[in-house]
Every structure is written in structure tokens, then in C-alpha cells.
Design a protein around this nucleic acid. Structure first.
Length: 559
RNA sequence: AACUCCAUGGUGUAACGGUAGCACAACAGAUUUUGGUUCUGUUUGUCAAGGUUCGAAUCCUUGUGGAGUUGCCA
């Protein structure tokens, strides 16, 4: 017998454990710092689960801080959607809502502090001159002709920048670090630029704005954040992050730790590409159910719990791998299998007439709401002489492995009766329009008959007279290539032409009229479907969340 | 021969010098009034070469491969 090992932790949680046990910190404070310039996506969900998850586990706190230092790109609309998405994911920042723009005055003061100590200067060079002076990956930079201005002159110029005396781009404030540093970020980075654009919160109070690098670490320090978790592309910024903390009278010493961002196959995650999909109308909007945005997957019917589980499963490392979308779908099915109520719906109807069933008779059968949770009880489903079954559940020339209905064969109608197909009716073009079947009264409720007869399949059905006719949207992955943004080709060339199929005459079990917007249910044998949050009119519109695993389709595909 | 970081089955992730495990995927079988679920089993892995060690996925060296960085974006 060995002692069970404690559940393994990712490298970030190990660092936190060490910091706690060494006494470096006596609590844990993290933050989720989105820029309000777009909608949140699954990549953000990974970061949210990490930061808020750590706060919960360590009984610390996680701040929601909007990194709003670029008025040209940001808007209050995004602030609101971001809050909504985080709440939907199941996390709460409590009283800890902050904006980097709340720190503009303090940041200005600290910029002056740098100038006073000879650690920052106003540069009159334009962007192009600065680029030339920065050098490149192989070559060192050269110092700006304005680098050695006096403290007094810098102070005067910087305050006049604030007063609005200069136009955009005319001057910048730069940290005075090292123009030959091997890390380009350290070659006198710009820390303030002039932007005469109203800010969504501070209006026109400012016309100079701090850069990300001059804002983030200081904001962390002001909020007493202990561990500032960000993605790998900020690795090269860490020396700068620390340089500012070293040269400024900050109240605390946060630590930046980087982890790999989320990559998923068959989708794109970059804000730019998602924006392009929206703007060029490849999708219906940010919350199109095919989008990897939080609002998109919510509308698609993915449960928040499934997203959280998924994020737990993929873990936190520094390895930039690509996660398989099937892992996400598996998390979604796991939750939905447990929670979703079952109903019957026929997507592609084929009429069946039970010739030996009385014409005006209607029976009601009891059907289990969820076999995974019998306490939920049963529902009543009407049955009559004319029904719809799924076109895929009938084949005229059926292969041996086809278990469903074919002429002369018998199947079970779920919870109803066994039926045998006697005759196929076709139109002039030879299309199958109707099936004539007979039922066995002894199999009432779907029970096995006393003669020991066996049936290989149970199929779903809807009574024609009682059916609700409605729209169902079948969503599939947006891209047909595993890595749409890889290589030279345009990601738009990889769009899956069949990512949306709209069915307008699906036949639903009448109980489905009562499902509220946003709820995801199972259409038996087909998949999980969610009532579209934007559906209007008398009948709900259903979105396919994800199909059921389908081993028949797989076997059939192999030929 | 710029700097920094990364490398474990098909994919992702554990193993903290001592039996390479888990999930997803795939494949087979059992159960099943959903070809779903559940259960059982199978296949597949430490980038390479040296070194340290009784013992290396783990430590060291070198190499190979990949990623990020040359915004007045974040």
C-alpha cells in the first residue's frame, strides 16, 4: 500500500505554494486583465479559469482589471460583454473591479519620477526615426539625439505634452535604459504617447496615454497582486516589467509568470481574425454559435461547467501545443449527458402509416426524461396512426450491418410499438414518400413480445398530427482544416462550406414547445440542441450544440 | 553561433534521481427500449548523442527541431 500522491499541480501553483510556505507572501492575489477592445473567447476562458480558479483554491482574490490604455481601440460596450461572459463562466470579482485608467494620475506622477532620476526623456523623433535607431535582432541600436536632454527640459516638455501642446506622434516619453540591450524591449521603450482621442472612461481629460509596459506591472503593484499570470508572448517583456518596479516607489512587488495560450484545432483564436469573420459576414456576429467566443459557445449551448472542466483538463504549461477540439466536445457531452432532458425530434422526416392502427386513435406513452437521472420522472408522448421517422432510419437496400428499418424487417419505435415495414410508396421520380407498416399490439410501450422475437434497433419518431414544425440549425466546425492559420494560405480559404445547415421543417415532440431559451436538451439518437437565445415567434429555434457519438456513421464512412 | 523560451504515444497532460501513469482519440468486446451512456480490454511515447550515477524522462554538455521578440497595440 502506498500513500496516495496529492493531485499534481501545474508549475504556477507550485510557485505559489513555495511563495506561501517560504513566507514571501501570506496571501494570493491574481488578476484577469482584458483590454476592452473585443469579445472574450476560449483563450480568455483558460486565463479566467486559471486566475479566478487560483483565487478560489488559495482563498485569495482575483481582480478584474480592464487594461484600457489605448482609447483608439476601446469601448464601454466591450466592458459590459466581458463582465457578462466572466459571470456566465461562473466567476466573481466581488468588489475588485479596476481600470488601468484609474491609475493615470499615479502613472503620470511615476513618469515624472523617472524623469527626475534621469531615467526617462522626451524624444522628438518620429516613429520611423525611432525604428531605425532601435537596431534589429542582429544589430545594436543607436542613441537618440534627444536622449541627453536636461531633467528640467524633459520635465517642461512632458508637462506640455500633457497640456496638449503637441500633436499626435510629435513627441513621446521614453525610458532611458540601454540602446544596445540584446532584448529589444529594453532599448529605451516608449512609455507615453500622445493620442488626441476621447477615452471611453476619462473622456478628454488626457491626451497622453501610458503604454502597456508602463502600466501593467505598476497596476499589479498598486493592487498588491502577488502573481501576475500572462501568456508566453510577454516573456520578453518581463525584464522591462521588473525594471519599472525596480525604479519606481511601488507599494508591492508582483511577479509575472507566463504560460502557453490556448490553441484549438479547426478554429482560429486571434482577435483580428475573429473580427474579420464578423465584419465580412462569414458569421452572423460575435455570438454566432460557430465562433469560439464565450458568447458564441454560450449561444451554441455549451455549459459553463464543461468549459471549466475543459480548462482543467488541458492544464497549464509553457509548451505551446494544439488541443484537440474533440477534448472540448467530450467535456460538453459529459455534462449534457448528465443534465439534458431527452426528447424526440425528427430532422429529416419520412412519413410512416401504421395500416393496422385505428385511424382516429391516440395513445400517450410514458418516456423517461433522463435515464442518467431517473428522479426526473417521465413525460407523455402522443402516438397515432401517422408518424414521422428519420429518413436515415430507413434503407431500401440495406447492408447487413444496417440495424434499422427496411422492407420486411422490424424495429422498435422508442417507448411505443414494434413495427414492420410492409411497403414503400414512391413518387413519379422514384423518391420514397411514405412507408406502410404494421404494428404488433403485444409490444405496447416497446416491450419485448412473448414469442422471443428480437429487434436490432430502436428508432425515434414523432406523431404527425401532434408534431411541432420548426427550424433547426445544424452547426459544424467553422473550418475544414486542422490549422486554418498555419502556413501561407489565407485562413478564409479553409472555411467549411457546410458549417451551417438550416432545416426548416423539423418535426418535434410537442413537449419541446416548453423548453426555455438557452436550455440545452437531447434529441434522442441525434445530439444535443439548444433553444436559440435569439429565437422569436411562436416556436423556438434550435441550435445543434454537438452531436451524439455515432459509431454507425463511423462504420458506414469506412465503407 | 541576436536574445528568450519550449520538447513525454495521434493530441494534451502527469511522474520533482527509483515500476513511464491519466484523459481525449482510435480499435475490439460486454451491457443497453438512444448504433447514446456505462463497463472491460488492446494499440501507440520520453527529439538525438555523449556525460554524471548503483539507477536518468528528470541533473550536466553539445546538437536537432519548434515558438516569441525588430508597434507611438495589448
Amino acid at each position: 500500500m502506498s500513500i496516495p500522491r496529492p493531485p499534481s499541480k501545474d508549475f504556477i501553483r507550485e510557485i505559489i505554494d513555495e511563495d506561501l510556505s517560504s513566507g514571501k507572501h501570506d496571501g494570493t492575489v491574481t488578476r484577469f486583465p482584458p483590454e476592452p477592445n473585443g469579445y472574450l473567447h476560449l483563450g480568455h476562458a483558460k486565463s479566467i479559469c486559471l486566475n479566478f480558479g487560483i483565487a478560489q483554491e488559495y482563498e485569495g482574490r482575483c481582480h478584474l482589471r480592464f487594461d484600457d490604455t489605448n482609447p483608439a481601440k476601446e469601448d464601454t460596450e466591450y466592458v459590459e460583454s466581458i463582465k457578462e461572459d466572466i459571470k456566465w463562466l461562473g466567476f466573481d470579482w466581488g468588489d475588485h473591479l479596476y481600470f488601468a485608467s484609474d491609475y493615470f494620475e499615479k502613472l503620470y506622477e511615476w513618469a515624472v519620477h523617472l524623469i527626475e532620476n534621469g531615467n526617462a526623456y522626451v524624444d522628438d523623433q518620429n516613429a520611423e526615426e525611432m525604428r531605425a535607431g532601435r537596431g534589429d535582432l542582429q544589430n545594436p541600436g543607436t542613441e537618440s539625439p534627444f536622449r541627453n536632454r536636461s531633467v528640467e527640459e524633459n520635465l517642461d516638455l512632458f508637462s506640455r505634452m500633457r497640456e496638449g501642446e503637441f500633436k499626435d506622434g510629435e513627441k513621446v516619453l521614453r525610458a532611458r535604459i540601454d540602446m544596445v540591450h540584446p532584448n529589444l524591449n529594453m532599448r529605451d521603450p516608449v512609455i507615453y504617447r500622445i493620442v488626441h482621442t476621447p477615452h471611453h472612461r476619462t473622456g478628454d481629460a488626457w491626451c497622453i496615454y501610458p503604454m502597456y509596459d508602463f502600466t501593467h506591472g505598476q497596476s499589479d503593484a498598486l493592487e498588491y497582486v502577488t502573481h501576475s499570470l500572462c501568456t508566453l508572448e510577454f516573456e520578453n517583456h518581463r525584464p522591462l516589467y521588473e525594471w519599472f518596479l525596480d525604479h519606481l516607489p511601488v507599494p508591492s512587488r508582483p511577479r509575472q509568470i507566463e504560460f502557453a495560450r490556448l490553441n484549438l484545432n479547426y478554429t482560429v483564436m486571434s482577435k483580428r481574425k475573429l473580427l474579420q469573420l464578423v465584419e465580412e459576414n462569414y458569421v452572423s456576429g460575435w455570438n454566432d454559435p460557430r465562433m469560439p467566443t464565450i458568447s458564441g459557445i454560450r449561444r451554441r449551448g455549451y455549459p459553463a461547467e464543461a468549459i471549466r472542466n475543459f480548462c482543467k483538463t488541458i492544464g497549464i504549461t509553457k509548451f505551446k501545443g494544439t488541443n484537440d477540439i474533440t477534448l472540448l466536445e467530450s467535456s460538453v457531452r459529459e455534462i449534457l449527458n448528465r443534465d439534458a432532458s431527452r426528447f424526440m425530434a425528427v430532422l429529416k422526416p419520412l412519413k410512416v402509416v401504421i395500416t393496422n392502427y385505428p385511424e382516429d386513435q391516440v395513445e400517450e406513452f410514458e418516456a423517461v426524461i433522463n435515464p442518467e437521472n431517473p428522479e426526473l420522472g417521465t413525460r407523455k408522448v402522443p402516438f397515432s396512426r401517422e408518424l414521422y421517422i428519420e429518413q436515415d432510419d430507413f434503407m431500401e437496400d440495406a447492408p447487413k450491418k444496417f440495424f434499422r428499418l427496411t422492407v420486411g424487417k422490424e424495429v422498435r419505435l422508442r417507448c411505443a410499438y414494434w413495427i414492420r415495414c410492409e411497403e414503400v410508396i414512391k413518387d413519379a421520380e422514384g423518391n420514397i414518400t411514405e412507408l406502410r407498416c404494421t404494428y404488433d399490439p403485444e409490444t405496447r410501450g416497446g416491450e419485448n413480445p412473448s414469442d422471443g422475437r428480437k429487434v436490432k434497433a430502436t428508432i425515434h419518431w414523432v406523431s404527425a398530427a401532434h408534431a411541432l414544425n420548426t427550424e433547426v440549425r445544424l452547426y459544424d466546425r467553422l473550418f475544414s482544416e486542422e490549422a486554418p492559420d498555419a502556413g501561407e494560405s489565407n485562413f478564409l480559404d479553409c472555411l467549411n462550406p457546410d458549417s451551417l445547415e438550416v432545416i426548416t421543417d423539423a418535426k418535434l415532440e410537442p413537449n419541446l414547445a416548453r423548453v426555455p431559451k438557452g436550455e440545452t436538451v437531447q434529441f434522442e439518437r441525434l445530439g444535443y440542441f439548444c433553444v436559440d437565445s435569439e429565437s422569436s415567434g411562436d416556436l423556438p429555434v434550435f441550435n445543434r450544440t454537438v452531436g451524439l457519438r455515432d459509431s454507425w456513421a463511423k462504420a458506414k464512412g469506412k465503407g
